[in-house]
């Protein structure tokens, strides 16, 4: 039988397979160590960290919706100091898999401070989470072309590490935001983050989430996420990590065919940690059956 090649490149980051564990869905790595071997996956993106620790939003923080998860975790995280001292070293030492660190700030200055803390670390890249509130502005950074351009440009000047930008789907034209990120020097685009959404309890007349507004993820968002990957593929030539509702091999293939060079697993990890291995096996079967053999050939092969 011919050898199947699942290797994929995200610019300077080479992955042994296209599976990326998405930010916020496998914590800092240690929580899932008994269930997922990080050596099996292509890359991991750690939970978004902020300069100072964040307690997160009041509970309830999650509700289950039709084929989806609605969350308002509120970026609860241990903060940069604890992350760098206690979480990151273990991840880098135990596994050879590329580790991408996701960061967020409420001001540009906070992003830049985080960059300077990460610059000398042996990480594969930095992912900018630009879906967080922008102090003093109504929109998040990721909802505004000019703000996105400004932030990415400023960060680009301060780091030579591969720079990923995680796009928010809560925009009118995601292609435009993607283009701004590209022009400002982003190396890779991750999309999509969660969709702004709300859950109501008719019995009590209250919002179901403590934080009122939440972000929707899971199979419910897949068709919209796919549309966004398609739009971004048409407007930029940057490598894409596509995600949003991927829960089986077919979902993964759909994103790759649409134009994603790698695929992110988020909510589905909570449901089935073994999914990484299942999708790798499924992709191999598909490539063999279709006599394609190289995953690369499938990327963006959509027939329209």
């Amino acid at each position: 039988m011919k050898k199947i090649n699942l290797k994929t490149n995200l610019g300077r980051i080479s992955l042994k397979n296209p599976i990326v564990l998405a930010s916020g869905c496998f914590g800092y790595g240690d929580e899932y160590k008994d269930l997922i071997s990080l050596d099996d996956v292509g890359a991991v993106v750690t939970k978004t960290i902020t300069l100072k620790p964040k307690a997160g939003n009041p509970p309830p923080r999650v509700v289950e919706t039709a084929s989806g998860i609605l969350n308002s975790i509120g970026l609860a995280n241990v903060g940069a100091e604890v992350f760098l001292k206690e979480k990151l070293p273990g991840l880098l030492k135990k596994f050879s898999t590329p580790v991408i660190v996701s960061i967020a700030g409420e001001t540009r200055d906070e992003y830049l401070k985080l960059i300077s803390l990460l610059n000398r670390k042996k990480i594969a890249g930095i992912e900018l989470n630009i879906s967080c509130p922008n102090v003093g502005k109504d929109l998040t950074i990721g909802q505004d072309e000019v703000e996105t351009f400004g932030l990415v440009k400023a960060v680009r000047k301060k780091t030579n590490l591969p720079l990923l930008v995680k796009l928010s789907p809560n925009v009118t034209d995601i292609g435009k935001i993607a283009k701004s990120a590209e022009k400002a020097g982003a190396d890779i685009l991750s999309l999509v983050n969660t969709f702004s959404a709300i859950g109501i309890d008719a019995e009590t007349g209250r919002a179901k989430l403590g934080g009122v507004l939440g972000g929707l993820s899971g199979p419910a968002i897949k068709p919209i996420a796919l549309r966004m990957v398609w739009q971004v593929r048409k407007t930029t030539s940057l490598p894409i990590i596509g995600m949003g509702g991927i829960a089986n091999t077919s979902d993964a293939l759909e994103f790759i065919i649409t134009g994603a060079n790698a695929i992110g697993l988020g909510s589905a990890i909570f449901i089935n940690p073994d999914l990484c291995r299942e999708i790798i096996a499924g992709l191999k079967r598909y490539l063999s059956r279709k006599r394609i053999y190289n995953l690369d050939k499938l990327v963006g092969s959509l027939i329209v």
């Binding site: 916020g24 869905c25 496998f26 914590g27 929580e31 899932y32 269930l35 939970k47 997160g56 509970p59 923080r61 999650v62 998860i69 969350n71 975790i73 609860a76 990890i269 909570f270």
Partner: peptide, 12 residues
């Protein structure tokens, strides 16, 4: 949700 401490969803 996750049951293993990763998602921070079940905060008390």
């Amino acid at each position: 949700v996750c049951g293993v401490g990763a998602c921070q969803g079940c905060a008390v």
